[in-house]
């Protein structure tokens, strides 16, 4: 891999920015060049949230992700908006609990996971994002016990250290599904 561009998108409150930050930190820990750029807007709640993450072996040029190699869509508006933007040969990870329609593109790989349903079935309803993250790491061949542990320690503040274990559980649930 020389450069991989991710776009995470969903509703505000789904942990979109957090998932992106985790992926960026994991890249940093693995000595990659990284950037993380969120969308920002006036709506506090219920609006669309997205962030672009770039992981690269070279210094990151533009941090703006227009044509992601990996799209993570956690709601229907996100898939509607970004499906056509995915780079040819790219991968779409989607939360099939919230997105009923199928991906129309035939030149991309699709992984559909009922992440929201799985999260609530397993007693961590706010961690659908991390279930998808687990799936992404697995499918990209980036599941690395050591660096993902270290990345979790970076994104979860000491105050919420009790959240480490459950985040790890969510990642593993996604990775093993």
């Amino acid at each position: 891999m020389s450069t991989r561009q991710f776009l995470f998108s969903g509703f505000g409150g789904q942990g979109i920015l957090f998932a992106g930050k985790f992926i960026a930190y994991k890249g940093l820990i693995e000595n990659k060049e990284v950037s993380w750029l969120p969308s920002y807007g006036p709506e506090m709640r219920g609006g669309t949230a997205s962030c672009g993450v770039i992981i690269s072996d070279e210094p990151v040029g533009s941090p703006i992700v227009n044509n992601p190699d990996v799209l993570v869509a956690m709601n229907l508006p996100s898939l509607d908006r970004f499906e056509s933007k995915v780079a040819p040969g790219g991968i779409i990870f989607l939360d099939s609990s919230l997105i009923e329609r199928k991906v129309e593109r035939t030149d991309v790989t699709v992984f559909a996971l009922p992440a929201t349903q799985m999260a609530s079935d397993n007693g961590f309803p706010t961690l659908a994002n991390m279930i998808l993250v687990g799936k992404i790491l697995k499918e990209l061949g980036e599941y690395n016990d050591e660096s993902l542990k270290a990345a979790l320690a970076k994104v979860i503040s000491a105050k919420h250290a009790d959240m480490m274990e459950v985040n790890r559980k969510a990642i593993d649930l996604g990775a093993n599904s």
Binding site: K21, S35, W36, L37, V60
Partner: peptide
Amino acid sequence: DGTMGQMMEP
């Protein structure tokens, strides 16, 4: 600008 302020990098 807004991107410089909002983006995260190492």
